[in-house]
Structures are given as C-alpha cells and as structure tokens.
Amino acid sequence: MPGGTGPTDPVKIKKLDSQNLMIRWADGHESRYVGPVLRGLCPCASCQDEDTGQRLILPMHIPDTLEFQKVEIVGQYALQFEWSDGHRTGIYSFERLRQLCPCADCTKASRPAGSETSDPAAN
C-alpha cells in the first residue's frame, strides 16, 4: 500500500544492549534479535553470493562476542548495522528482518520442521 503504515512496518526500534536489538511492529508483535546471529545473516554482496544467494559468511563464522557499534535507519525501509569487526555494508530491509524474527511462533510458521530452508536464525 502506498504511504501509511502496514501491519508489518516497525513502530519501535530499541537497542537493548550492545548485542541485543528489539523491534516492535505495527501489529504488536515484538522481535528480539541477537547481534552476532544477524551479522552471520548479513545480506551484503561480500557475505552472500549475489547470483546464487549462497552464503559466504555463516553465523558459525562470527564470534559470540561481536557487538553492535551503530544501528541506523536507511531511508524508510531498512536498518544498517556497524559491527565491532568493522563490517557495515549490509542493509537489512524491515521486510527481511520480520522474516528473520527468531521467536518460536515465527520460526514455526515460516520454517516448519523438515522444510528445505535451513535458516540459521531458527537455531
């Protein structure tokens, strides 16, 4: 829909601490993200092959100690993070972030057991 706020648009974005981020959506749902996991899912071209979509960087490559340095809103549609490892080229659209919500309800709904998508955020 042009303009206005859709149910899955963010209404509140809060950095809880240096590793945790909360987004509340217009439909009331709350997503809590863990920094190092998000970093491992970075959608930028050096972390994910542009043509095949194959991941070049996985959450297993990221140290648990990684922190958010900066969280910035991009235009009106995405977040960009600067991490303590210096990486900052990933733009995470709100749509993608909503898909990545790691809560039990969302992982059950979008990634049922036995499905082919092995999204590490479900772990």
Partner: peptide, 13 residues
C-alpha cells in the same frame, strides 16, 4: 518505478 519506491518504503504522493 512505483513498485521500486514501494519496496524501499518511499510513500507515493
């Protein structure tokens, strides 16, 4: 063009 703006959440005036 319109869809591209929608994807980047730019309101269509």
């Amino acid at each position: 063009t319109l869809r591209m703006f929608e994807q980047t959440k730019v309101p269509i005036l």
